[in-house]
Simulated scan of single mutants.
Amino acid sequence: MLIFDADDTLWENNVIFERVIDEFLDWMAHPGLDRDGVRAGLDGIEAANAVTHGYGSKVFLRSLAECLAWVRGRAATAEETARISGWAAAFDGDHVELIPGVAETLAELARRHELLLLTKGDQEEQERKVAASGLTPHFKGVHIVAEKDVATYEELVRAHALVPGSTWMIGNSPKSDILPARSAGLNAVFLPNGNTWVLEHSELDPADEKVLRLAAFGELLHHF
């Protein structure tokens, strides 16, 4: 069984958030606080909100509003709130940008193996992206979860009667895709994405032989 992450593994996602963040940091220009300082503050706010409110564009926009209040020492004005709300349009629509090689590689892998999709975030938002991708027919099942931790992978193993030692989790996030999957006894494929969210970064054990590191999605065909 091959299990695939979605955002930033099958299609680009965080790059959209980063574009908005760049605009936000320009807007928050502050004589006593440089861009790195504002970004560090935003990262901390996002990390806290992820624990309490989960993931997705709605939580992200909430974090921007809280960061603005932190930088300016007051709540956002109606005009500022409207500007932040306007960024919601960046996450609307029925189109996702597939990462090169994904469509043809998944089509071939689906002929060779059973595939599952495992993604975390807002249910409605993730459902929309999955549908827009056009990739659903390749998967035996699609699972949208609030968090991807060890318990999530263990539950997936039980639900599909998987054999951990012959199951592979494929994704771009060390924190959500690789480390918890390995802790649950699964093998893993790490596919780095230069746009991976900073809060998904984590160190991998270079000596772990059960983690396959690939440079491009299409390379999966050489191993599976």
Results as ranks from 00 to 15, higher is better:
residue 119 T to C: 01
residue 58 K to N: 09
residue 133 S to D: 03
residue 219 E to P: 05
residue 74 R to C: 11
residue 121 G to I: 01
residue 182 R to E: 03
residue 94 D to H: 00
residue 48 A to P: 03
residue 134 G to N: 01
residue 111 R to L: 04
residue 154 E to T: 14
residue 56 G to P: 07
residue 191 L to V: 13
residue 148 K to L: 13
residue 50 A to Q: 02
residue 122 D to V: 12
residue 3 I to P: 07
residue 203 E to M: 03
residue 124 E to V: 00
residue 192 P to Q: 11
residue 4 F to R: 00
residue 104 E to T: 04
residue 14 N to L: 10
residue 140 K to A: 14
residue 77 T to H: 01
residue 4 F to E: 13
residue 117 L to R: 01
residue 55 Y to G: 00
residue 202 S to T: 10
residue 218 G to A: 12
residue 56 G to F: 03
residue 202 S to Q: 14
residue 107 A to G: 04
residue 156 L to N: 01
residue 86 G to R: 06
residue 63 S to M: 15
residue 13 N to E: 08
residue 224 F to K: 00
residue 112 R to Y: 09
residue 181 A to L: 14
residue 180 P to M: 10
residue 165 G to M: 15
residue 180 P to E: 07
residue 38 V to G: 01
residue 52 T to V: 12
residue 35 R to M: 08
residue 154 E to F: 04
residue 93 G to F: 02
residue 196 T to R: 13
residue 21 I to E: 10
residue 199 L to C: 10
residue 110 A to M: 14
residue 75 A to S: 08
residue 201 H to I: 06
residue 60 F to M: 07
residue 178 I to Q: 08
residue 75 A to L: 13
residue 21 I to A: 13
residue 45 I to K: 11
residue 125 E to Y: 05
residue 209 E to Y: 07
residue 11 W to Q: 02
residue 175 K to C: 06
residue 5 D to I: 03
residue 205 D to I: 09
residue 183 S to D: 06
residue 93 G to V: 09
residue 216 A to E: 10
residue 126 Q to E: 03
residue 96 V to W: 00
residue 220 L to Y: 09
residue 87 W to G: 12
residue 6 A to V: 01
residue 130 V to D: 03
residue 75 A to T: 07
residue 210 K to V: 13
residue 38 V to R: 06
residue 45 I to H: 05
residue 158 R to Q: 05
residue 207 A to N: 13
residue 79 E to Y: 03
residue 134 G to V: 00
residue 84 I to L: 00
residue 80 E to D: 04
residue 184 A to C: 10
residue 118 L to A: 14
residue 64 L to K: 03
residue 33 L to R: 08
residue 47 A to Y: 05
residue 216 A to W: 14
residue 126 Q to H: 07
residue 183 S to H: 08
residue 35 R to T: 07
residue 96 V to E: 00
residue 51 V to M: 11
residue 131 A to P: 02
residue 48 A to L: 02
residue 170 I to A: 06
residue 177 D to M: 09
residue 47 A to H: 09
residue 116 L to S: 03
residue 164 P to R: 06
residue 219 E to Y: 01
residue 59 V to C: 02
residue 38 V to I: 13
residue 173 S to P: 15
residue 35 R to L: 05
residue 115 L to A: 11
residue 120 K to M: 07
residue 48 A to R: 11
residue 74 R to G: 14
residue 101 G to W: 02
residue 70 W to N: 10
residue 156 L to K: 02
residue 224 F to L: 08
residue 40 A to V: 12
residue 207 A to Q: 11
residue 9 T to I: 04
residue 23 E to F: 09
residue 95 H to Q: 05
residue 123 Q to A: 06
residue 136 T to L: 01
residue 49 N to S: 11
residue 135 L to K: 02
residue 104 E to N: 09
residue 122 D to N: 07
residue 150 V to I: 09
residue 12 E to F: 11
residue 144 I to E: 07
residue 205 D to F: 15
residue 12 E to G: 07
residue 1 M to A: 12
residue 211 V to F: 06
residue 219 E to W: 04
residue 177 D to A: 15
residue 69 A to L: 15
residue 139 F to G: 13
residue 7 D to Q: 08
residue 31 P to W: 01
residue 50 A to C: 08
residue 210 K to A: 15
residue 48 A to S: 07
residue 112 R to W: 02
residue 2 L to E: 11
residue 29 A to Y: 00
residue 2 L to W: 12
residue 113 H to D: 15
residue 168 W to M: 11
residue 183 S to L: 05
residue 14 N to I: 13
residue 28 M to K: 04
